[in-house]
Design a protein around this nucleic acid. Sequence first.
DNA 1: ATGATTAATGCGAACGTTCGCCCGAACGTT
DNA 2: AACGTTCGGGCGAACGTTCGCATTAATCAT
Lengths: 342, 342
Amino acid sequence: MSPKGFRKVTLKTVAAQAGVSYQTVSKVLNGQASVAPETRQRILEAVKTLGYRPYQIARSMRARRSFMIGYSWVQTSPDQVNHILDQFLTSMVREAEAAGYHLLPFPFREGNAQVDAYRELIDTGRVDGFVLSSVNYNDPRIHFLMERGFPFVAFGRSDPGLDFPYVDVDGADGLRQAVEHLLQRGHTRIAALAWPEDSRVGNERLQGYFETMQRAGLVVLPEWIERGEGTFEFGREATARLLALPPEKRPTAIVALNDTMAIGAMHLARELGLEVGRTLSIIGFDDAPMSQYLVPALTTIRQPIAEAGQKCVDILVGLIEGKPLAQRQVLLAPKLIVRASG
Amino acid sequence: MSPKGFRKVTLKTVAAQAGVSYQTVSKVLNGQASVAPETRQRILEAVKTLGYRPYQIARSMRARRSFMIGYSWVQTSPDQVNHILDQFLTSMVREAEAAGYHLLPFPFREGNAQVDAYRELIDTGRVDGFVLSSVNYNDPRIHFLMERGFPFVAFGRSDPGLDFPYVDVDGADGLRQAVEHLLQRGHTRIAALAWPEDSRVGNERLQGYFETMQRAGLVVLPEWIERGEGTFEFGREATARLLALPPEKRPTAIVALNDTMAIGAMHLARELGLEVGRTLSIIGFDDAPMSQYLVPALTTIRQPIAEAGQKCVDILVGLIEGKPLAQRQVLLAPKLIVRASG
DNA sequence: ATGATTAATGCGAACGTTCGCCCGAACGTT
DNA sequence: AACGTTCGGGCGAACGTTCGCATTAATCAT
């Protein structure tokens, strides 16, 4: 593996070169003991000329720590895209490296096999902690990890009763911003394209919608809440229903819980000859990369993904190393990106 | 870490339970030695009831292998998206796990620090091999790894002179399919939105264009080749120039080396009142997730990303373990996805 | 019955690191 | 001058695994 038959250089190699015991080399490198300046110098020089780098596996073995963070994510369907993954992973990898850790990605499994995968990584000593994503109500991983007392941070909240470390984006605040923006522009009949009721994230976001409408003294008609799987197709169909309502009930603005549905809504509106941004306002959620290129460009809500990844790792490392934490539950505010659609 | 003060169960724990030496347990689990059936049974039972799982760090220590594959990718600009990452990572992670390996993602660096990052991972014994992506001409990582004789597989080719293991998508073939499709539909004036000449991938794809045009006996006007940074904006501007050409030179079809430029081209065409798919045909490359939702939906070329990731890991593991390889250089064919734009 | 072969298991060693204990020499204090 | 203290550094041990050799008991051929 080394260039042309060079043997791996270890503490002993360095020690031989510097004329000390190998344990002394270790102490110098870790600043553990009092060592004569000239010895120290000799050792550091030998380290440099030999290009010594500590063998991390031996370190892990001794420390009984892997310095690895397990992470697993649901693969989106091929026609969708996880535009968040790149940012989230990159920010976690960076932050982890700065703290002396690495990420260990592993395949996402469904059902019973899911917790098994986490258990296996713990039992084989591969990871010191986990970052969870795509958490939902009653997440078996959270129960398992809490019971085992194994360090983890969830990206996203779960049941309100459970007290565990998380980082999440304040989806309710996002919808509050969107709705307030629409109210300011004079809209009063605002519909919502939402997810099924078993989606915690969806309910959270929707609550921001309800609260803001209520605070403005507006009554939300039941017909205005469309729940579906968050697809482009659903966005179209739901919008067709909304725009077929009688004029006094028909919404003049639509907020969608993701950009994909918002784009479906835009397509339908255009088919009906409506001018999106004028006759009908549409606001999305996610700031998918394509949203800026649509005609009209989509007004949407951007989540601070990089910051979230960073925070997750930050808190997790604190948990692993038993440091006192400033906060173990973080809520980040998303940001309304106003473009032409609403 | 374990539930309520349970100590980690090791080979010795199992051995004590089964009344044998711990090395014998190891042998049974690895099928290394001849062991009496009843002893074997006792041991396996103890393994099961104690829930023994081997400590991978100790294994790695002993085997002097990390069973890790290093991988690093360029983060795309925030307004772009790496829609390939999810698929590529997922397929690599899956394939790696099946072979007993894990992925080790690490931050992508530029300049000298780039090779340093690779060297560090080797010297600290963290990885057994690398998968490289975003390779280009004269890639310093390839030179470094070849010189060190360290196992790696590149996703993408580099200089023709260098002989190293790679997996790549046949970009020339992709453009051949696109151009032939356009020729069949009667087009003869076909322009290309390309990348700068220092892009190997770009030149490769463009060569497929040139060859197919030439084989059809068509002369390619220099004005038809537009080179830029592959952005939406460049796609628009270049298309504006192309459509401003005098009628006898003006292209009736455009092939773009990525979907982003193709979308820019579509926007400009629409602004000029052209009907994309009829008056002007446009074909992209990548099959970005948004492309199917455009109006008209974008005809494009889809790359077999999951297969590429799988092959990369396959070959790399073969390299690491010194297995005889069926092939160490793989070229995968992309697929033309015909939609409405061309 | 004896010696050679085989089967079943034990045991020592090693991978590279860090930690804690020990010891000798130098130094300062009384 | 005797004694405690500090400094500089050596050394043994351990983390959990696998590998190879040694050892004993059982089996077989002579």
